[in-house]
Design a protein around this nucleic acid. Structure first.
Lengths: 357, 357
DNA sequence: CTGAAAGCGCTAACAA
DNA sequence: TTGTTAGCGCTTTCAG
């Protein structure tokens, strides 16, 4: 059973030609006389020869493999990225070497360094601080990053987080919401951008943003953070979550706390993961085009592999997806930019002094 | 910048020893005198030497890479499998080469054949017919399959589908449901097992199963199949979906058709994907332990790589997870195994003649 | 404990 | 158009 695979040499012998001839034939590097070509073809499938990619790689220095390092394959955002990247890779005859770093800072670096050795280039999603990008460059392999680097020129892709956040905030404002909370995830590279996008918007309307932080970008973290926000003193009438997963968890817990959604509270997230649509109420969110991000990253990387220089940040456009988790404040009538005035508490603004002690 | 990586030869020169000495040092194949060891260590990190895995693989014939072929990374069931497999692989210092075959039969085989060349072993999830398993064996690489093969002795893992299905059916029966439909997915290897599990159960209660088929294992397919089932002549009071995704889509559409869940209709699925919990009503389902399946498959594969023979089918135990999408028929009172008698239609059984013409 | 030498399977000049 | 030859970077006998 463990019959050793035939080598290029066996084929050459069987066909009565030189090894280099076989090599050139396999790689289509050259044209051949009909007789030789016929003999080669015959020999090859008589022996069932398959070229050994390792040996080839060793010489060419190319593996036709792309490393993809992500934080958690279970997060649909990353799943979509993988899907998109995979599709483009397959089209170009590349294979994906996947590394799930499991949101662990320590594992990340050694894993990526090991990965670098086995691939032609890498696509990386990471929570590493911006100055750590340095050593990525030192790997001297083409790399595409998710999220812009402030200091270093490195190919990267992302979606305009400030804009996405503004869209969400403005949507809520238009619906008459005035006490808006942001349940962020500070560890993420995207968090600041999103928070600022919201805060800027609110500021123009003379409002302040109530900021909280989730301990993970997951549904369970959303559940956990819920009561402190909803039953605390700020009493938001809308909350923007760092992502859809957090939002989903938040909504579940909110319902269990007795809030009616969306009547008592509007909730939104970022990403537009597919299950947001099947939640109830279906989640209003902003589509970050995760899958396209994956495609674009892979396209950029392959271009780099083909010699094109690329230090740019490619920014995709977000799109607001309004569903059922947001609705107009029952007690307001003016569209937006109005003097805010909520009935429950006299004297507007926020910081009402809380009833929950 | 493109300074060529130092080789083992450079290290040997710098340390003033032979290449083979360096090799042995790196692989820890031997013990060394303190002086040599010190020189080696110094030379290595002076040069920043990193051993080239390709060259190593070419000799040893081992790549420390496992191929994982799945049908669709976006299906949380597979995502979980990847997660589990990845974790075990990392523990054993293996890396995952991922291939998403996108549910395509044609692509599958060439992709897997190419994959086989670059890895030490493979874990495969496929919809290929049982006789196609033959060529997998011929790849003469260790393989672990998801789902049992009837004809061939091949290592495989899965969850007891017949039992899982019975659990669901019995649960529904216990709740007083009598007109039960199965929205299956015939292309899957697991479908028959599940259908039979349900049908066997119903038969014991003197009931027949109303069988339908989804065109894909996805939420959208569940939506699409919904109206034909619910507004057709059979009028089920409970439907069992092939998986949670289909169930989620089905529930969404059912609500849009005006059905109240779970009052008018109980819905269940298979898998226990995480978002089933965040749907509303939260989905009753049966946990197939997807992540553990991934772990187990990888564990088996690594064992095989270490020389242990393994032709067995390892079966995990399913667990029923009751949530909100199932409830007792309002109009029945006896627990189970009773003479069924639904008020809407005289004369029980099913096949009531339909009012939807 | 250390070193010299022979390749792994293949590609890439260079010759013929 | 075809063949010869020299390695890619490493491991692995086999001698010292």
């Amino acid at each position: 059973m463990p019959k050793t695979q035939p080598t290029i040499r066996d084929v050459a012998a069987a066909a009565g030609v030189a090894v280099s001839t076989v090599s050139k034939y396999i790689n289509g590097t050259q044209r051949f006389s009909g007789s030789v070509e016929a003999k080669l073809k015959a020999a090859i499938d008589a022996l069932g020869y398959r070229s050994n990619p390792l040996a080839r790689s060793m010489i060419t220095g190319k593996t036709r493999t792309i490393g993809l390092a992500i934080l958690d394959i279970r997060n649909p955002h990353f799943t979509n990225i993988v899907k998109g990247a995979n599709r483009v890779a397959l089209q170009h005859d590349y294979t994906l070497l996947l590394v799930d770093t499991e949101e662990s800072q320590e594992r990340e670096r050694p894993l990526i360094e090991a990965l670098a050795q086995r691939v032609d280039g890498m696509i990386i999603s990471s929570r590493m601080p911006d100055d750590a990008v340095q050593w990525l460059l030192e790997l001297s392999k083409p790399v595409v990053l998710f999220g812009r680097s402030q200091q270093f020129p490195i190919a990267s892709v992302g979606t305009d987080g400030h804009l996405a956040a503004s869209m969400l905030a403005r949507h809520l404002l238009n619906l008459g919401h005035r006490r808006i909370a942001y349940l962020g995830f500070a560890k993420s590279r995207w968090n600041d951008e999103r928070r600022r996008g919201i805060a800027d918007c609110l500021q123009k309307a003379g409002l302040q943003l109530d900021v909280h932080d989730a301990e993970a970008p997951s549904a369970i973290a959303g559940e956990r953070a819920c009561s402190a926000i909803l039953l605390g003193s700020s009493q938001p009438d809308a909350v923007i979550c760092y992502n859809d997963l957090i939002a989903l968890g938040f909504m579940k817990e909110a319902r269990e706390l007795g809030f009616r959604l969306p009547q008592d509270l509007s909730v939104v997230g970022f990403d537009n993961v597919s299950y947001a649509e099947y939640a109830s109420p279906a989640l209003t969110t902003v589509d970050l085009q995760s899958e396209k991000m994956g495609e674009l990253a892979m396209t950029k990387l392959i271009a780099a592999l083909n010699g094109s220089h690329d230090d740019e940040y490619a920014m995709l456009e977000p799109r607001l997806v309004v569903r059922e988790s947001t609705m107009r404040r029952p007690d307001t009538s003016q569209p937006a930019g109005v003097t805010e005035m909520t009935p429950k508490t006299a004297g507007g603004r926020r910081r009402t002094g809380g009833q929950g002690a």
